[in-house]
């Protein structure tokens, strides 16, 4: 059926400035707009949202795609790696032809191609103690989609220091976990005060991961980001959701802010980002606990 021209005017003019959407946007976001919890106002919140995704790999792939599809207006994507053939078994934002290209660039391009409303900003560099605060400061919500402990601790610390909500996810073999570290409600270091000793935890490259697993966890992370931007529902703040992919079971662990946490506790010893490689190399001693 033919669509009417988008130039048609409303019968009753709005008293306040209309949250205007063009015809394409009304169709693109129609399944959001009809939800009582979202509507045009919520969709505008998503379009105004700024989300930083740290990692454009297995977790970052569904995050980039779903957040771009949802119309999150600004996506920052941090990853210093290039696409490798061994990534393609789970990192579904990348294509075979992308092997050798910067992951951040490929993911940003995928976001733009999926939804031209999205401004995607690639950061083809590592987050470091020198740049973390500057990069993160420009965003409303940060997502940890990284695959290593130094980055995880650095992102956590920087988010606590800047008061940014952090949507955490991690996968290993058949298991995953996901949580939201909301300001004042606990952080990654409240759950895991000490980084593992160097060499104790194998990376995905050594340990393997079932290809669809990061899709499950990354998609839950995307859900949490959207709820935070919308201000709707109950997030995983204060709860760690653990997924056992072999038995297909979810378990939940409640946690609270640790007053002795070195970052978000009452007397924090970490007051600026730590050079993460030195931090993890030093192991437990560096946490001050």
């Amino acid at each position: 059926m033919d669509k009417k021209s988008s130039t048609r005017q409303q019968a009753t003019p709005p008293e306040r400035p209309a949250r205007t959407f063009d015809e394409d946007q009304m169709q693109r976001y129609s399944r959001h707009i009809v939800l009582p919890e979202i509507g045009g106002i919520g969709q505008r919140s998503l379009l105004d949202g700024k989300v930083l995704i740290v990692g454009a790999g297995g977790l970052g792939s569904p995050l980039v795609l779903y957040l771009a599809a949802a119309g999150v207006g600004r996506l920052g994507i941090v990853d210093s790696d290039v696409v490798e053939l061994s990534n393609l078994q789970r990192q579904v934002v990348h294509r075979t032809a992308d092997v050798g290209r910067a992951k951040a660039e490929v993911a940003a391009e995928a976001a733009r191609l999926l939804n031209p409303d999205v401004v995607a900003m690639p950061y083809a560099e590592r987050l470091t103690s020198a740049n973390a605060l500057g990069v993160i400061a420009g965003y409303d919500v940060v997502v940890d989609a990284s695959d290593n402990f130094p980055t995880r601790y650095l992102v956590n610390d920087a988010c606590v220091l800047l008061g940014k909500p952090l949507v955490y996810g991690a996968v290993y073999r058949f298991d995953g976990q996901v949580s939201v570290f909301a300001p004042g409600q606990g952080c990654y270091r409240c759950l895991f005060p000490r980084p593992p000793e160097p060499g104790m935890i194998p990376s995905c490259a050594e340990g393997g991961v079932l290809g669809a697993l990061p899709g499950v966890i990354g998609t839950i992370q995307a859900m949490e980001v959207l709820k935070i931007l919308l201000g709707k529902g109950q997030t995983l703040a204060g709860r760690l959701l653990a997924f056992d992919g072999l038995s297909t079971e979810f378990r939940e662990l409640s946690y609270v802010r640790d007053p002795d946490c070195p970052v978000c506790g009452d007397r924090p010893s970490v007051t600026e980002p730590i050079d993460y490689e030195a931090f993890c190399g030093l192991g437990a001693a560096a946490t001050g606990r």
């Binding site: 949250r19 169709q27 129609s30 707009i33 509507g39 045009g40």
Partner: peptide, 16 residues
Amino acid sequence: CPMTFVKTKLALEGMA
């Protein structure tokens, strides 16, 4: 549907 309600809802949101 669903554009009938999408446009109705957006119009209502813009009204007092």
